[in-house]
Computed example of a mutant assay.
Amino acid sequence: MWSLLALVVLAITVVVAMNWAPDQPVQKLQDRWATAPSRFVSVNGMQVHVRDEGWAQDPVPVLLIHGTSSSLHTWERWAKDLKADHRVISFDLPGFGLTGPAPDNDYSIAAYLRFVQNLMDTLGVKKAIIAGNSLGGEIAWRFAAEMPLRVEKLILLDASGYDFKPQSVPVGFQIARIPILAWPMDFLLPKSTMEDSVRDVYGNPDKVTPELIERYTAMTVRAGNRAALRKRLRQLQAGEQAALIKDVRVPTLILWGGKDKLIPPEYAERFHQDIAGSKLIMFDELGHVPQEENPVVTLAAVKIFIQ
């Protein structure tokens, strides 16, 4: 009996040792993930990770908003190209990336709208072309519906907003929803869990590289982000304001991955129907993060739309 118990304890010890990944302070991650032109801007009591690039005098900058558990890095290829002709602003939302958790633990869409408004004010942006992916897409269209005078054009990439029914949910999101796993989740992060989660949002999982897994892992273990994700998911009310989508009156481009299993393509059609005059482009081979999976082809459509 004692031998069996010893083996169990040994097995648990080995598993914990192999998957040990406690929170990391933001200062430890900055050298690798906040290189120039990154800077930190004070907004709503947070030090927000921002990249503000390109034509500084641009009267209508391009504002890029990432999705759940992502970061401004998802837009790097877009920003590199767009900054030749535009001012391009990307940033880490509260609860994600290097910005980290919100002091008030409010991760409602209303709180994110106030945050984006205050960030724009801080950066001196009166009006912007706003693009958003997933959660960032919901923030973008809600902003356009409620503050249309501050939005020149809108670009939605696999946006949330309806009470959608996923075909598949990344395993990391599934774990974050289970209260009993909350404490272990703050200290353990199996490499396979992160890899499976990222592969799940790509149309072609073979495009997921070790470098990509390293980045998503670093953003996950930023101090406070795992707890913030749990709080965000508890505050999630899918489809609560879907009726407002019809209030969007700015020119809108909808880009969608035909292989998106998290928010399937049928919801792209609903956005297209509900937003008058919108244009929809479906990328049959891409998944939930088309701007990251194939920045070249997605950006080509965007440049035509905004220029």
Results as ranks from 00 to 15, higher is better:
2 W>Q: 14
2 W>D: 02
6 A>W: 04
6 A>D: 08
8 V>F: 13
9 V>E: 08
10 L>A: 15
13 T>D: 03
17 A>H: 10
20 W>R: 05
27 Q>L: 05
31 D>R: 10
33 W>I: 03
34 A>F: 02
35 T>E: 10
40 F>P: 08
41 V>C: 03
43 V>F: 07
48 V>K: 00
49 H>M: 06
51 R>M: 09
52 D>Y: 02
53 E>D: 14
55 W>L: 13
55 W>V: 12
59 P>V: 13
63 L>G: 06
64 L>I: 00
64 L>K: 09
66 H>P: 07
66 H>G: 07
71 S>C: 10
74 T>I: 14
77 R>D: 11
78 W>F: 13
84 A>R: 08
87 R>V: 05
96 F>D: 12
97 G>P: 05
98 L>N: 01
99 T>I: 11
100 G>S: 10
103 P>A: 06
105 N>Q: 10
108 S>I: 02
109 I>A: 13
112 Y>F: 13
113 L>E: 11
114 R>E: 14
114 R>C: 07
115 F>S: 05
116 V>S: 11
117 Q>A: 12
118 N>I: 00
119 L>I: 01
122 T>K: 13
123 L>Q: 09
126 K>F: 10
127 K>I: 07
130 I>C: 02
143 F>M: 14
146 E>P: 00
149 L>P: 00
150 R>M: 10
150 R>G: 10
156 L>R: 02
157 L>I: 14
157 L>E: 15
160 S>R: 03
160 S>L: 13
162 Y>A: 10
164 F>L: 12
165 K>L: 13
165 K>R: 15
168 S>Q: 15
172 G>N: 00
174 Q>R: 13
177 R>W: 06
182 A>W: 02
182 A>Q: 07
186 D>I: 01
191 K>M: 13
193 T>M: 15
193 T>Q: 11
194 M>D: 09
195 E>M: 13
196 D>S: 14
197 S>C: 12
198 V>N: 12
200 D>H: 09
202 Y>K: 09
203 G>S: 12
204 N>V: 12
204 N>R: 11
209 T>D: 14
213 I>H: 00
215 R>M: 12
216 Y>H: 13
227 A>Y: 02
230 R>A: 00
230 R>G: 02
231 K>H: 02
233 L>T: 05
237 Q>P: 02
238 A>T: 11
240 E>S: 14
240 E>L: 12
240 E>C: 02
242 A>G: 01
247 D>L: 10
249 R>W: 07
250 V>K: 06
252 T>S: 15
255 L>Y: 04
256 W>V: 04
257 G>L: 09
260 D>A: 09
261 K>D: 12
262 L>H: 09
263 I>Y: 07
265 P>W: 04
267 Y>D: 02
267 Y>V: 10
268 A>L: 08
268 A>D: 00
269 E>H: 12
270 R>K: 15
273 Q>H: 13
274 D>M: 07
274 D>Y: 10
280 L>A: 08
281 I>Y: 08
282 M>L: 15
286 L>T: 06
291 Q>P: 01
293 E>W: 06
301 A>Y: 04
301 A>L: 01
301 A>G: 03
302 V>F: 07
302 V>K: 01
303 K>C: 08
303 K>G: 04
307 Q>N: 14
307 Q>I: 03
